[in-house]
Amino acid sequence: MAVATSVESAGSSQPESASWTLKLRQAIDRHLPMDHLLPDRQPYFVGSWVYVFGVVTIAALVWVVVSGVVLTFMGPQWWHVSGVGRFFNSLHFWSVQLFFIFMVLHLWGQYFMAGWRHGRAATWMIGVVIFGISVLTAFTGYLSQQNFDAQFIAINAKDAMNGAGIGVFFNVLNFGQMYGLHVMLLPIGVTALVVAHIVMVRTRGVVKPIDAEGGAQS
């Protein structure tokens, strides 16, 4: 904090509002100082395995991305013809299963704790958006498998997409489009929103127990 103070005083020779850089840094310092981003202490009521589901979800996502990067690097046909490729595909497949299992357990936990209280509604809402985009990412992944499963999912799913008018922009029968979305745009979306979600959690800290200050909606 001493450093921040000295920099502020150094910059005071010009009007404080003039520097966007300074204002951004002060805003970050105010909303998310390092001791909030990486606190070494938690309220004593943080003592349940239910709190662990979120971090395991992140860990599974890391493995999804790591195995996905290897599969992407080697191309979409590699895992059908190589034992090593099949292993990385298996790691990808099971990491995705773990990711969804722990994400849903985290959702259950946050629901029963009413984790959206005390100004945390946006954190909950971004969590729901992450779930939705993750479903879409997994779906494009299933379509990118280049096997029988992918073929029939595409044929089956096109009716839902076309019925809703989405099929025009999101053609599940177009492998190139699905693959591109799966390895690039959608994972970036999930990762960016997960980072935002974590920052929001750390900005406010964990919520107090229900009835610590009145009702669940307070």
Partner: peptide
Amino acid sequence: LAAAFSSPDVPQV
């Protein structure tokens, strides 16, 4: 899980 169960890959038609 990957080592024990591998992953599904029914060949394309």
